[in-house]
Design a protein around this nucleic acid. Sequence first.
DNA 1: TACACTGTTCCGTATAATGGAACGTGTGGC
DNA 2: GCCACACGTTCCATTATACGGAACAGTGTA
Lengths: 280, 280
Amino acid sequence: MERVAIAAARSPLSDRARPMDQTGTIEKATDVLFFLHRQSAGCGISDIGRALDIPKSSVHRLLAALASRGLVEKDDTGRYRTGMALVALGLGVLEREPIVQVVRPILEQLALSVGETCFLVAARGGRLRVLEKAEGTGFLRAAPQVGAEVPHRVTAAGKLYLALDPEALAPPVDGHSSAAPVRSEEVRDGDRARIRIQERGLAWNRDEWIAGLSVVAGAVYMGDRLVGALALALPSPALAERDAQELEQQVKAAAEEASSRLSGLGRVPGSAWPPAADSR
Amino acid sequence: MERVAIAAARSPLSDRARPMDQTGTIEKATDVLFFLHRQSAGCGISDIGRALDIPKSSVHRLLAALASRGLVEKDDTGRYRTGMALVALGLGVLEREPIVQVVRPILEQLALSVGETCFLVAARGGRLRVLEKAEGTGFLRAAPQVGAEVPHRVTAAGKLYLALDPEALAPPVDGHSSAAPVRSEEVRDGDRARIRIQERGLAWNRDEWIAGLSVVAGAVYMGDRLVGALALALPSPALAERDAQELEQQVKAAAEEASSRLSGLGRVPGSAWPPAADSR
DNA sequence: TACACTGTTCCGTATAATGGAACGTGTGGC
DNA sequence: GCCACACGTTCCATTATACGGAACAGTGTA
């Protein structure tokens, strides 16, 4: 099954970890986890040690500790891979997101009716992340990875955020230099495009991030707060054969439906409330 | 949205971690992760310290290390919760499972046609885990948690495994006392039931694990190896109003379809192959 | 057979985690 | 309005804990 895999290039966090390698047991252990995550097949201790520049014995100890809690597992050939406990933890994070619960059925319906991949992107800690997806049916289709990070300037969701809630992107640490110096005509063009996005609540990205991939995203609000971008992705040639305006309308309608459902529930939905203080 | 939440009682690994608290940095860090996972809402440092009996300053350090890699996040109120990086890791584990890829569409179709929750259970490291689910449409419906563990003896999937591949359950560590002493008539009854399950490739569980919940599971094979149990769950009263034999037939057909698709592909499917040695 | 390669165990070393105390903050109560 | 309490955070001397080289045992290749 061939797919256009957007954001499949590399794990989003590996880059962040690269420049300043904090030396600590937990950091090393998580580096091992992410390394195993990147490997599509199981991995041996020596491989890990070489790749991460950690002695074999240390890798062995780290893996033993991680395995004792189910974060990694040994398959029958003795190779290590990421463990099922991570599934429970990861799915738990998603289930705790009200937006995902509300938007999931809308995504699925939209994907079904259009036949192309739909997904939800939201800002978390200054970064844009894919929170949920519903894949289309095409042989060639977008297949984003849930949990993956997407860039700001060259994606439909990113443009939406930059136009409607730039504060949500990259707020952590140093607040200085919120905008890099840009040429004056770029500013004017950028402003014009931004205003248009603000007016319509829609943003496009045609081949800007990935050649051959076009995306239109609609703003999802909770009350008056932007809480996500509902995006429809399709191969650019397929877009040429379709009515772009009608696609826009479908995305906009889906985003507005999501907004109205989200604004309906006061704060935290269903099973996630009340807090249910832990017994022990 | 009210649901019968099967296996929602507590995190499957918390129990395992309880009896013998290994003292180590990684173990402590993962304990913090699982504690945050159990909390439905964000959690403060002091809460965690009290619950896990760890000094505040240590908790602070652990959280800082985990947060540096995105495994935990601070929400806007300064409370900690499990982080998006876990989503990527957890989803990665699932995507790496050939069975999940193959069975997912079958689960969804079955759930759609029956209108009740379907899920896939498989043995991993001697334990039975929910690998994937497709929820039904009922107001009262089973809602298992993907990644959660289910018991052996009182579930349909467990009976299937005990009858067809008992070796897959609890092989680790001490191989002694593979069977606890049982009464003779229990043995005879057990044998009779087991033989029936072996013949039919189907197992039932009516109210044995959770009152009001009935499940029928069909065996999924890859070649001649049992690789999972495809289960259909519904409230017991709903079962009384339906044709149990027809449900059996649907589950059996779905399980056989899954088996045939799995046996079709030689070993590892699609994008997970070839291994693609990591660049760095 | 000898080799190169695994994963695993051992143990002396010193690094890195520890936890009590002190600091700065803000939320709720008298 | 103040006080009191609990919070998250920082600091630092102590030592428990993670470290990693070396030796071991099992496996498949030349």
